[in-house]
């Protein structure tokens, strides 16, 4: 049986499969070194002992990135949690979500910028580009991936809940006492990942935020770290004050996103291993 199924796979497909595995394997092993090299370069360029760099400016960018991520997460979470709770187990929903989750965040941002924002601007006098739009775009773009991860997390309680229903528990009892506690680490990991992604997002933010140094971001001259890097890095003189500020912002943002992602990964591993460290 195994021999016959093997014969059905064309040789070219098997070779391509092996090549793809090799490339992915080599790429995967190289990724940590690339990350370490990038971190080392950023650390070197950030010149933490340089006396003339402006920490308040870097702080403003970081506050912008973190607050944008938090607000977007706060906006996306209710929809993603509700959707995951109500739409669990539906293959059609999952398939649809996987397709939508693959769309870059810049796409909802672009649609907001060209359809929704001008309409709202004409009727209510709000600017077409504003940090609020960036929050909405990020929140809309974060719902599908969050929903998917949360669905996976909630699936964990599926077997237990069936047993609970058989013993006469109500849906709300099952949700409160079984599903949510069992999937809580998975929920936390999913939310942390969403936050990490939103914090580092650049293109969507630049498209719709208008690069206001907003009240939540403080007076750093840019909306977020990503926006500052994209707009000012090409024109900053290497070794100058602005360059060092940008490198410090990039370094801290990288450290923060990698740390948040590492924590979410650890939480998820513990969750999958049934609570064993």
């Amino acid at each position: 049986m195994a021999e016959s199924s093997r014969r059905r796979v064309p040789r070219s497909v098997r070779i391509a499969d092996r090549l793809a595995g090799l490339v992915l394997g080599v790429g995967g092993s190289f990724a940590p070194f690339a990350l370490a090299a990038a971190m080392f370069w950023l650390f070197w360029q950030a010149d933490l002992l340089h006396p003339f760099a402006d920490w308040s400016r870097v702080g403003g960018w970081l506050r912008g990135s973190v607050s944008l991520g938090l607000v977007a997460l706060a906006g996306a979470s209710p929809f993603a949690v509700t959707g995951a709770l109500l739409g669990r187990g539906s293959d059609l929903v999952r398939l649809h979500l996987r397709m939508v989750a693959a769309v870059p965040l810049a796409v909802p941002a672009f649609l907001l910028l060209h359809w929704t924002a001008p309409w709202v601007s004409q009727r209510f006098g709000l600017p077409v580009q504003h940090p609020g739009w960036a929050c909405i775009a990020l929140a809309v773009g974060m719902v599908p991936p969050l929903w998917l991860i949360l669905s996976d997390a909630l699936e964990r309680g599926g077997g237990i809940s069936a047993a609970a229903y058989a013993l006469g528990a109500t849906p709300s009892q099952v949700m409160r006492t079984l599903i949510l506690p069992a999937s809580a680490p998975g929920l936390v990991a999913a939310l942390l990942r969403g936050f990490s992604r939103a914090m580092g997002e650049t293109m969507a933010v630049l498209l719709v935020s208008g690069n206001y140094a907003s009240a939540w971001g403080g007076a750093g001259g840019a909306a977020t770290v990503g926006a500052a890097l994209v707009l000012d890095l090409p024109e900053a003189s290497p070794g100058g004050g602005l360059w060092i500020d940008l490198m410090r912002g990039g370094l801290l943002l990288t450290v923060m996103t990698v740390s948040v992602y590492a924590v979410s990964d650890r939480v998820e591993r513990r969750f999958r291993s049934g609570g064993q460290p």
């Binding site: 402006d54 308040s56 400016r57 403003g60 580009q129 208008g210 690069n211 206001y212 140094a213 907003s214 009240a215 971001g217 403080g218 007076a219 750093g220 001259g221 840019a222 500052a228 707009l231 000012d232 024109e235 900053a236 602005l242």
Partner: peptide
Amino acid sequence: NLSSGTRDEVRAAIGGTREFGSGVRSL
């Protein structure tokens, strides 16, 4: 944006602050 020399000149002219205040859009 931050790398503009004109930005520095305007910043100095409006009050000599290190940076524009919050709510200023940079292009």
